[in-house]
């Protein structure tokens, strides 16, 4: 019976081999954009990096054009360091997102699962930090340009309420929104990877 199984398969092989892919189709396929989820996530990070670079340049130009005093310059310098640091962090994430598809299936699936989860976590962190910090910096800068001092800004109840709203409200909201969007886009995919990883981890010897 085992031989029958093999014979049936061998005959099927002929059918699989019969349908050839023509040269044009191969050439077209190798120049397309990948639909691989990791590639899509990479593209998303690349877009964010572009925006951060644009904001960095814009901030630098505004800083030069609006030099007023040491305080505003210090805040602008903080903005530049923050944007530069964010860009480098994103670059690091981007470079780590290589998905080698020539390794064994178990290793590939595990790597994909971990990388996708890591990027989604990163997206949530970005949601948490960017909105909060941008809001706080924006408010601080505008107050400084109005002639207020740091002490006045950070003891003013209106400013403190604003900071609280941004830090807690928008930060939490940003994280929640990012998490929900990621869940909708990737939960099913992560489950798909996890199911097969679990199947590959079952040890049938015991």
């Amino acid at each position: 019976m085992s031989q029958d199984l093999q014979n049936a398969w061998d005959q099927l092989q002929n059918n699989f081999n019969r349908q050839k892919i023509d040269k044009e189709a191969i050439m077209q396929a190798i120049t397309r954009t990948s639909s691989n989820p990791l590639e899509k996530l990479k593209k998303g990070i690349k877009n964010k990096m572009r925006w951060v670079a644009v904001f960095f340049i814009a901030s630098f130009i505004i800083m030069l054009l609006t030099i007023q005093n040491v305080r505003t310059t210090a805040v602008w310098c903080f903005v530049l360091v923050y944007l530069g640091g964010s860009w480098l962090y994103m670059r690091h994430q981007y470079n780590n997102m290589t998905g080698d598809l020539t390794g064994n299936v178990k290793l590939t699936l595990t790597t994909y699962y971990n990388r996708v989860k890591k990027v989604l976590k990163f997206e949530e962190t970005v949601g948490l930090v960017i909105i909060s910090i941008s809001g706080i910096i924006g408010w601080t800068l505008s107050s400084l340009y109005k002639g207020e001092t740091f002490k006045e800004i950070f003891t003013d109840p209106v400013s403190l309420t604003f900071f609280l709203i941004f830090a807690v409200g928008y930060g939490a909201l940003g994280t929640y929104a990012a998490r929900k969007m990621n869940e909708k886009a990737f939960n099913e995919y992560l489950e798909q990877l996890k199911t097969n990883i679990d199947l590959l981890n079952i040890n049938d010897i015991d």
């Binding site: 639909s35 691989n36 989820p37 990791l38 998905g99 598809l101 020539t102 390794g103 064994n104 299936v105 590939t108 699936l109 994909y112 099913e188 995919y189 798909q192 990877l193 097969n196």
Partner: peptide
Amino acid sequence: KVSLNTVFTYQRKTR
């Protein structure tokens, strides 16, 4: 290997 890995890591549109 490449084919299997691509299939297993592919995000299916119609699950």
